[in-house]
Computed example of a mutant assay.
Amino acid sequence: MGLQLPEQILLPGRSGPAGRSSLGSLDRPDRAHRLDPRPEDEPIRLWARANGYLVNDRGHIPGPLREAYEASL
């Protein structure tokens, strides 16, 4: 009848199922850490708010917003 494989195939050097790291969340950056504001972005955010732009307290600043800030200097 054919080859039967176990439900969980373990890969060398891993203790979990195939495709999953045994380190869990330790093998990728913490989402909150990646979204922390960079200090060099704060002047851009302050300028954007003062000039009517909607901008989050943290996360990515869109390129066109950065360009508008640079053009204003």
Rank of each mutant, 00 (worst) to 15 (best):
S21V: 06
L23V: 03
Y53L: 01
L23F: 12
M1R: 14
A18K: 14
A48M: 04
L35N: 15
N56M: 09
D30C: 11
L73M: 15
G19E: 10
L73W: 15
A18Q: 14
P12H: 08
A50T: 05
G59C: 12
L10A: 08
R45P: 02
I44F: 03
A32Q: 13
L73E: 12
R20H: 12
D57W: 13
R38A: 09
L10T: 11
N51E: 08
E40A: 12
N56F: 06
L11R: 12
P62E: 01
L26D: 14
P62H: 01
R45A: 02
L54S: 13
R28C: 09
P6M: 03
D27T: 07
R20Q: 14
L35K: 14
L65A: 00
L35C: 08
D36K: 15
L73G: 15
S72K: 11
I9S: 04
L11P: 01
R45H: 07
G59T: 11
E40V: 11
R31P: 02
L11K: 09
N56V: 04
P39I: 05
L11N: 08
Q4W: 10
N51T: 14
Q4C: 13
R14G: 04
R66M: 01
P43Y: 06
I9A: 10
N51W: 09
L73N: 12
D36T: 13
A50V: 05
R28G: 05
A18W: 13
R28D: 03
G2Q: 14
P29S: 07
A50Q: 14
G24L: 11
L65M: 15
G52R: 09
E40N: 07
R20M: 11
P62D: 00
R45F: 05
S15M: 06
R45Y: 05
N51I: 11
G13Y: 07
L10R: 15
N56A: 15
L73P: 04
G13V: 04
D27R: 07
D36L: 15
R20S: 09
P37Q: 06
A50K: 14
I44C: 07
R31Q: 08
L73D: 06
P6S: 06
L11D: 08
R49E: 08
L5F: 13
H33F: 11
M1G: 15
G2M: 11
M1D: 14
P64A: 02
D36F: 04
E67H: 04
S15N: 07
Y69H: 02
E67L: 03
L65H: 00
I44N: 02
R49C: 03
D27P: 01
I61A: 00
D57C: 07
R66S: 01
A50L: 11
